[in-house]
Simulated scan of single mutants.
Amino acid sequence: MALAAALPDLEILGAEVVRLNRPQAGMLFGSGKIGELKHRFAEDGVELVLVDGAVSPVQQRNLEREWNVKLLDRTGLILEIFADRARTREGVLQVELAALSYQRTRLVRAWTHLERQRGGLGFVGGPGETQIEADRRAIDEEVVRIRRQLAKVVKTRELHRAARRKVPFPVVALVGYTNAGKSTLFNRMTGAEVLAKDMLFATLDPTMRGVALPSGKKVILSDTVGFISDLPTQLVAAFRATLEEVLEADLILHVRDIAHPETEEQAADVRDILDSLGVDEGVPLFEVWNKIDLLAPPLRDALKVQDARNPGIHAVSAITGEGIAPLLDAITGALDDERQETELVLPFSEGRKRAWLHDRQLVRAEAEGKDAWRVTVRWTSRQRAAFDRLEG
């Protein structure tokens, strides 16, 4: 229901949980349920049916014909929402790329018949090019075009990131399940006016702002797209670039809607996606338990006790501002790691480690010897630990 409600101008007429002992290969549901739903859809004037799960291309085609409606499965619905939310050039291109990848799988699996053929000259490879092959080729050409455009956008973003490294402000990334309140917290901490609404995927494109902490230290705060369970594989790949800021973060704030009945399951989904992205285990992570203003006083007090006992947990309300000051103090403490100067001897075979140091602007001086580089670096203990985990 929440996913459906995220699409604007969509009137939701109802929802039902249909239990399936075994999904039917051609129609997903059994004939009795299909007939029952067909009658109900006709009575209510339903034009769009949403299935919160995977529907094969053949099942989609057959159900649309039987019910005389448009049908979207979970992946198709999420793509529609993302298309509606995208604002930046990169966001639009990422959505288009994900949609084309999704359409191509529908194409390949749905049209298994061979009567859709266009005539050929006969002497170049058989009876001519089938329509499915022509459509597949057209999609592939469009994918190549979009990837070229994305490469330019990504190059520009990398230049911006390189420029930020030269002004070495730490990056603090907000991550969390969609609608956990990340953008509201972002606005509270930065004074910005990023779109913050009570709806899924209100933020799709990453937003960054500079923030001065109470100590005077400056950091870059990054708001990111909300995660969701069973994220379509097309979107995991397409939006990996959008989440690259998380991979470079010096501190991650995992924002949780602590008032949500499924907050534990949502948190597990976020942790799984962070693992799949390859986030460095050495990067400090705080759990920010947001929306405590929605809780009854006894439960709110209990959460505050956990907050006090665990330095990695912070109970806050981005709406009222409660708990924000201690969170900012904790961020300051986590990022105020004392820097030390160290001299390293790196054999020429360890060029990757040398490049890593230069990428992060840690090198203070360097001399090239007969068999190795002598590199003087200034770094934090956390940066040294990350360096030690590198290979070659």
Rank of each mutant, 00 (worst) to 15 (best):
Q149I: 01
K152T: 06
K152I: 00
K152R: 15
V153D: 00
K155M: 04
K155D: 10
T156H: 14
T156I: 10
T156E: 15
R157D: 00
E158T: 13
H160K: 11
H160L: 13
R161S: 10
R161D: 02
A162Y: 08
A163H: 11
A163I: 07
R164H: 11
K166M: 13
K166G: 01
K166N: 13
V167H: 14
V167Y: 10
V171L: 14
A173T: 03
L174D: 08
G176Y: 04
G176M: 03
G176T: 11
T178F: 04
T178G: 01
A180Y: 05
K182V: 05
K182G: 06
L185W: 05
F186K: 04
R188A: 14
R188K: 13
M189Y: 11
M189K: 09
M189E: 07
T190A: 11
G191I: 10
G191C: 09
A192I: 01
A192V: 09
A192Y: 10
V194Q: 06
L195K: 13
L195S: 02
A196G: 14
K197Q: 15
D198C: 08
M199D: 04
M199V: 15
M199E: 14
M199F: 10
M199A: 13
L200N: 09
A202C: 11
A202S: 15
T203F: 00
T203N: 04
T203V: 14
T203A: 06
T203E: 01
L204W: 14
D205Q: 04
D205N: 02
D205P: 01
P206R: 11
R209M: 06
G210S: 15
G210A: 12
G210D: 09
V211L: 13
V211E: 03
V211C: 07
V211Q: 07
A212Q: 15
A212E: 15
A212G: 03
A212D: 08
P214H: 07
S215Q: 08
S215H: 12
G216F: 14
G216H: 14
K218C: 02
V219T: 06
I220C: 02
I220K: 00
L221M: 14
S222W: 00
D223I: 12
T224C: 07
T224P: 06
T224R: 04
T224G: 02
T224V: 09
G226Y: 03
G226D: 02
F227E: 04
S229M: 03
S229D: 08
D230K: 14
D230P: 02
L231T: 09
P232G: 06
T233Q: 10
T233F: 05
L235Q: 03
L235A: 06
L235N: 02
V236F: 04
V236W: 06
A238F: 03
F239P: 02
A241C: 03
A241H: 13
A241F: 08
A241G: 07
T242E: 04
